[in-house]
Design a protein around this nucleic acid. Structure first.
Lengths: 337, 337
DNA sequence: CTGTTAGCGCCTTCAC
DNA sequence: GTGAAGGCGCTAACAG
């Protein structure tokens, strides 16, 4: 494997000059530049980034740590991150924590060892051990999607507002018994979505039945189980609000299993839209989050933090959600139950 | 940022000893081991992997280069890769080429610079420039999913067989005019799926109408366009075979737009199943590929190549697909057209 | 505009 | 069982 010395020798210059050509830093005459480039070509020289990073203390690499790479929402975010990063000459290491703090801690440690220049992190829980570790080492960090009890740059969507809109929509259709199929109760986005629901209900003067507010996990299985649970109540809800896309899928299946028609028997709304390429027929009323935008913005913010290590105070970017009304949320049907 | 020297000083030992503790190499007395560990803890020491990799020429990192991170098929593969890798103490860098050779070349170059220990690559095209580059540098490589015109370790699914099964299934239902909605024509899996179709048709003695064999791209848009095209033919097909999941989604939408019932008016089958969490109601007849398994096997193979640099000849692993019959493929309906 | 020198943090080799 | 020395490949700082 040729090194910068081999290139230098072949081109008849000093290693430092080769380095200058490689990094377009400092002045190099057009003539020597050409010679160096020719030597690089001839030897099929590939610079060693480990050595470069060790010396320059910059890897031009950022990391994106998400909670579920299987969810199209996160892969869309990843695309936004990647596009913005590569435009700025940064590469992205993508890691998946499966909503587990242990895996998160493991990856943060590993990425710190790999000397990434910055972190884009979706915190698995409210535990801030990893976040503190990152900040102690003065590595720039932008928290994505979920609030944490620490002052830190954040980019997220307006979960509370989206939930409020969805609930208002259902209330407007005449629904009063609206169940919330929540995510993990210690995840802020899940909490915020319940809060938005509460605000809409309170404003409308509709009493809240705590039996109708559940919270388990952001999975299809949980959506299925929670739906079965609320369907089993004495006074069954007339509408369901699933706080993410996977939960909504579970709800659809449970409603089907129970032989119920949507929206005829029960209305259903969800958070997060699914990409067109994945759905047979868009049919679910949702509060859609600008996933790509979120990734792009976060990536740009992180890179600006890395570049101008100005100590401006932590910022909080909140992107609006969009209410998309489709067939799954029909008006309340009066029944003689 | 503390280094191994700081740890050594605090523990009252030499840097080499700290290194031995860190890497569990060589003999260290229990007593000094404890002291070193305590010092590491006290300083919150984080080893620098760049330095380690530079010295040891091993990064314990492999790369996975896929063509579309947005497709659940690939994220499922990625999970298999990741699980097997982390079990063996390797981390994974995931990159997305968008089916572009340029992006692929870019990432391969970058990963080579980052000194990854091995490559898991889904080739964007039949162009072998990147593959040659990897092999010249003696970096282990396993090609995923798609055959290439080079002798190299390969792990893929039986595309030909899966397509054969699907076509036989349609023939068995009485269909004779079966259209193929293909992917990029220069991608081997797309070709193999057409080949499986041809074999089944030939065996059944059904003449093949080349008008019914299309090939564009693995996207929903392409599926939509190709479906519209075949529906516009004088003699419209009675069944469609979509060679991947996104194309199938496009077909579903085009059929709906045309006011056609599936399977009443047109039968539809596809390649690749979608995860349960993403589909409202499983309904499409498919040849399902064992995505997770594929990732796991490939990862294990690559890591074994890295570890025992034995020069055993390139292997080819072909995993079977599973035919899952659902509602989208009904029997041919006799019509007075 | 180009060369020389030094050292990033670690692991390997060789002593002891 | 442990320490000292050297160098992995590169770039920053300083000459000239």
């Amino acid at each position: 494997m040729p090194t910068i010395y081999d290139v230098a020798k072949l081109a008849g210059v000093a290693p430092a000059t080769v380095s200058r050509v490689l990094n377009a830093s400092g002045y190099v005459s057009e003539e020597t530049r050409r010679r160096v480039l020719a030597a690089i070509d001839a030897l099929e020289y590939v610079p060693n980034r480990l050595a470069r990073g060790l010396r320059s203390k910059q890897t031009h690499t950022i990391s994106l740590v998400v909670t579920d790479i299987t969810n199209p929402f996160w892969t869309t975010v990843a695309r936004g991150v990647e596009d913005a990063a590569s435009k700025a000459g940064f590469s992205v290491i993508l890691c998946n924590t499966d909503e587990s703090v242990e895996k998160q801690a493991h990856y943060v440690e590993l990425l710190l060892q790999k000397q990434v220049d910055g972190f884009l992190l979706v915190p698995a829980t409210q535990d801030v051990t990893s976040i503190s570790l990152i900040r102690e080492r003065d590595v720039p960090l932008v928290v994505l999607d979920r609030e944490v009890p620490v002052a830190v740059d954040t980019v997220r969507c307006d979960s509370e507002g989206g939930a409020y809109d969805l609930t208002r929509h259902l209330l407007g259709l005449g629904h009063r018994r609206i169940a919330v199929l929540g995510g993990s109760e210690d995840v802020p986005t899940a909490q915020a979505r319940v809060a938005g629901y509460r605000r809409a209900m309170d404003e409308a003067g509709v009493p809240i039945d705590s039996e109708l507010i559940l919270g388990q996990a952001f999975t299809q299985e949980a959506g299925h189980a929670m739906t079965q649970m609320v369907l089993g109540l004495d006074q069954r809800p007339t509408a369901l609000f699933a706080v993410n896309n996977f939960i909504a899928m579970g709800a659809v299946r449970a409603l089907r299993d129970a032989g119920l028609d949507v929206p005829g028997d029960v209305a259903l709304v969800g958070f997060d839209d699914l990409p067109e390429a994945l759905v047979m027929e868009p049919w679910l009323t949702v509060a859609a989050q600008p996933a790509y935008e979120m990734g792009r913005k976060a990536s740009e913010l992180l890179i600006s933090r890395i570049s101008n290590s100005s100590d401006s105070p932590p910022s909080e970017t909140v992107l609006p959600t969009t209410l998309i009304v489709r067939q799954s949320s029909g008006p309340l049907r009066v029944r003689s139950q």
